[in-house]
């Protein structure tokens, strides 16, 4: 996975990722993604770009609208120094790659092109040539991610179970 980095600070909450006012029922107006902290983000980014952030990314509510809004706007993955646990799970459940890399914001600046190896967790900053070691997703939950998210994972396993019968 390769893309241009958009760098955010610490403690970006789900309220900052997508204000609740832009979600009704299961519809999400993703054009407002990051509007409180970075208005115009949805217009700026191109499909495949990567969000890089500091500590405690996605803190706050359990709203799945946060990773979904990011995914809909074209974000292909998130590298953060640490994640809030619900955001982390939600991202995996919807198939949005999440990599933890301590001190990533020291090694990646806004606009750098970065390349992530999801299997090893290694992040290469193509602009500076620096290689950063991140943690890949835990082995036990990689199968959910590989299926493309929890819904697909469920459907795959359900089919397998039916075949066994």
């Amino acid at each position: 996975m390769k893309g241009v980095a958009y760098v955010f600070g610490d403690d970006i909450s789900t309220d900052a990722i997508i204000p609740t006012d832009y979600t009704h029922g299961s519809t999400i107006d993703y054009k407002y993604v990051f509007d409180p902290v970075r208005p115009g983000f949805a217009d700026e980014i191109e499909k495949g770009d990567i969000v890089v952030a500091g500590k405690n990314f996605g803190c706050g509510s359990s709203r799945e609208s946060a990773p979904i809004a990011m995914q809909l706007s074209g974000v292909s993955g998130v590298v953060a120094e640490s994640f809030s646990r619900i955001f982390y799970r939600n991202a995996i459940a919807i198939g949005l790659p999440v990599i933890t890399a301590k001190r990533i914001t020291e090694f990646v600046s806004e606009g750098n092109e970065i390349e992530i190896n999801l299997d090893t967790g290694i992040i290469l900053n193509n602009t500076t040539g620096v290689e950063i070691e991140g943690e890949s997703m835990p082995r036990e939950i990689q199968s959910i991610f590989e299926a493309g998210g929890l819904i697909n994972h469920y459907k795959l396993n359900k089919d397998e179970k039916e075949v066994e019968k």
Binding site: S62, E64, A93, I94, L150
Partner: peptide, 9 residues
């Protein structure tokens, strides 16, 4: 807490 996909599961 869990998200909505996980709760559906």
């Amino acid at each position: 807490g869990l998200g909505y996909t996980e709760m559906a599961y």
